[in-house]
Nucleic acid binder design. Sequence first.
RNA 1: AGGACCAUAGCUCAGUUGGUUAGAGCGCCACGUUGACAUCGUGGAGGUCGGCGGUUCAAAUCCGCCUGGUCCUACCA
Length: 945
Amino acid sequence: MDKTYQPEQIETRWYERWEADNRFAPSGEGEPFSIMIPPPNVTGSLHMGHAFQDTIMDTLTRWRRMQGRNTLWQVGTDHAGIATQMLVERKVAAEEGKSRHDLGREAFTDKIWEWKHESGGHITRQLRRMGASVDWSRERFTMDDGFYQAVQEVFVRLYEEDLIYRGKRLVNWDPTLHTAISDLEVENKDQQGQFWHFRYPLADGVTTDDGKDYLVVATTRPETLLGDSAVAVNPEDPRYASLVGKFVELPLVGRRIPVVADEHADMEKGSGCVKITPAHDFNDYEVGKRQNLPLINVFSKDAAVLEAAEAFDLQGRPLADIDTSLPAAYAGLGRFEARERLVADMDAAGLLEQVETVSNTLPFGDRSGDVIEPLLTDQWFVAVEELAKPAIAAVENGDIEFVPKNYENMYFAWMRDIQDWCISRQLWWGHRIPAWYDESGNVYVARSAEEARAKHGLTDDVALTQDEDVLDTWFSSGLWTFGTLGWPEQTPELATFHPSSVLVTGFDIIFFWVARMIMMTLKFTGEVPFKQVYVHGLVRDAQGQKMSKSKGNVLDPIDLIDGIELETLVEKRTGNMMQPQKAKAIAKATRKEFPEGIEPHGTDALRYTFLSQATTGRDIKFDMGRLDGYRNFCNKLWNASRYVLMNAEGQDCGAAGGDVELSLADRWIISRLQKTEAQVTKAMEEFRFDHASQALYDFVWNEYCDWYLELSKPVLWDDGASDAAKRGTRRTLVRVLEAVLRLAHPMMPYISEEIWQRVAPLAGVDGESVMTQPWPQADKALIDEAATRDIEWLKGVIVAIRNIRAEMNIAPGKPLEALLTKGTAGDSERLEANRLFLSKLAKLESVTWLDDPEQAPLSATQLVGEMEVLVPMAGLIDKDAELARLAKEIEKQDKLIGGIEKKLGNDSFVAKAPEAVVQKERAKLADFEAARKVLVEQRDKIAAL
RNA sequence: AGGACCAUAGCUCAGUUGGUUAGAGCGCCACGUUGACAUCGUGGAGGUCGGCGGUUCAAAUCCGCCUGGUCCUACCA
């Protein structure tokens, strides 16, 4: 083995081997365990969130596989409608200078397919680099043929049950992307805005109670004035009671619109009058429904003012008897230009009463970044209320459990107030809606045009055209757990692996995806999609900032694995930016944070870092220090293994029989291994990967390496140990290491496999891969408390002597004489049994048991229990230093004693605390006092010199 | 506005039903190339557990209020 751990040399080699050996496919035996990967965007690339999530899923998968479960990790990618279409649109524009409209629908979607084939392998290659043990033979895509069928089936059935409907509704319209989006795709952001107060003249000579011939309305969106249908006042408002039913004349437009009484108008706000624009505001739309107002749309799909408005009734039917003329000057103006123009015109007409600056919230499209416009359009919706009920119940009754549990409240809150889901998108990339129209606009929903004809008795001479729109991406990914398993066919895979065991996902897509999967899956399979949902947080940068290209703080997991030069990293972060003016600051910050670039750390170290930071449900601040630390941990494991192999390969490790004698250290480390196995398993069951990784780390570094390997050296290297003892130690070295590698494998698959291949034969274990070995199970019979106590004693004495050395400034290598005294008979027996270990590990020339403490020479003293560990001072020890040290020790004991005396002096503590607690405090007090006494005696002795 | 979560060593984080001398890693200080490992070893310094109040014999842990931070939902004519 190389002297240092070189991850790059082993990782890709092992992944290829596992894949070639088909180790990721379900075994076909044992209780099923399945995880469906949240499908990443097919043309995307792996970011830290993916790497984190994939690590958790792979750890669970490898662990369950080793436990003998019939394990499937289903892999696949998502077509990601808007994101992918935008990406290819930009690419085509950059490369060919053409828009998608120049190409036409078919040619453009061909381009997307081309791009999908070209780049679709990128993210799956990265997934391989992370070590993900997904079953590649079952890889799926949300627009493959099988999904196409599943999507048609679901759409048609929902339509037939009236759970999908089409209608002209007010929706969130993205004027840049020219598509409707759902509520969830809207991001509300606080902005500084203006609030204009306008006068609307009263018609027919009517005046207000205080004699004015106008009403004042205020708005942040002046341009929607063009589409006003009414002015509302509160029904309780005495100021305007006489005006209800009267009219105002809409300024600039001249349309007569009524004054209506509606509780939407807030008497406290502004003048108490509010303009109502049902076609351009969600609240006003509701007022419109209550007051039976016409819907007057004044915007085009670009959110530019129309030449003439369009008026509809609440069912979306055109209204003929409304004056739809608009001022000619506005035709074609964009909404923001129209706003400026309108304010200026109002001002000029003396109708602008006041302008206030206010902070308000604006809706933005999460993809385009454009301001969303409520717009009346024809769209398809899912009526979700009926679907939501069983989905709520499934979580309430525990069929689905969220980890951590508090996300259930977030889920309930949203589900109980859920709005109908707008599923149509005016895009070209996605599942086209299976609906056909005849020439008079009648709609036929069916799995195909042929089926539509057959079902509705349409002859071939009726021309049918398919709906132009596609479905929201989440409509198809909502079918992911069962669509990937072959539904609507009743496949054996569906029977075996559905419901899936656990979904691993981020809290940010609970509404987008998790909730919709639960609704759809319950509806169509009668089963929950998964039994548990493990919700993880976001991976943030070291400062706790969200990682984003525009902030220039993105880390690429692959760069952490393979390393990256500073200049390449700077180039990566500053190249191709949307806001190039930020490049300089980003470059500077990057050079400061990574002056040497990033060293290679390997996949295993990166995975271990994620796992160690995976506290349930909270965001993680990615910590480079920990990444370094776990790379070092890999190196530690590597070198410990080198030591084991150097001492075991070619030697008798007991695999072939022969007498075996286990030393105290052997029995101790075997005992500690059992406890570690139990801890790691428990942590995995609870999704506490931080605890699992911590337990393993502690065992390997602080017990196996720091103590056990050191304790094995005297047995293996010094004369005097029997063959049986050496055999016992070698056997323990390799067996414990072999178990550790199995324990580590789900978390660090590569290094564990690499070492296991060398160690397993020595431990007498057959097998081709650690992947398929049994998960270690703790054996209670091997827990040896007596050995643990003895080793703790031994460690105590060794540490005591090291302590004296350090505090007295004695060179670490200088051989010392030590005396032990005042202990029990057990202490002296322990000394005799462990003399060799003690001498070697504490570098002692001699160690002697002193029956009569009075005979002890002047020494530096440490306590191990009641026993005193003495290092004679002669020629070694600085009197003042020792006095200072003792004073410090005594002070420490005084503090402890003071605390306990106060407790025991409290009558109600003694009276009310459980007896065991009181006893424990008394025992501690006795210990501290004894220790103090020894220290004081020692101090007096030295001071008397 | 409603709600959730968080606040423990310089930094990143553990601390399960209240009883621990409050822990780990990194960083820091001192010493050290003994035959697995300087990506290391040995020892050490460093915390009134955000603040105030309450419950209790006993609070980092339970309750209330406050401050600071993150996020979600809704609304802002």
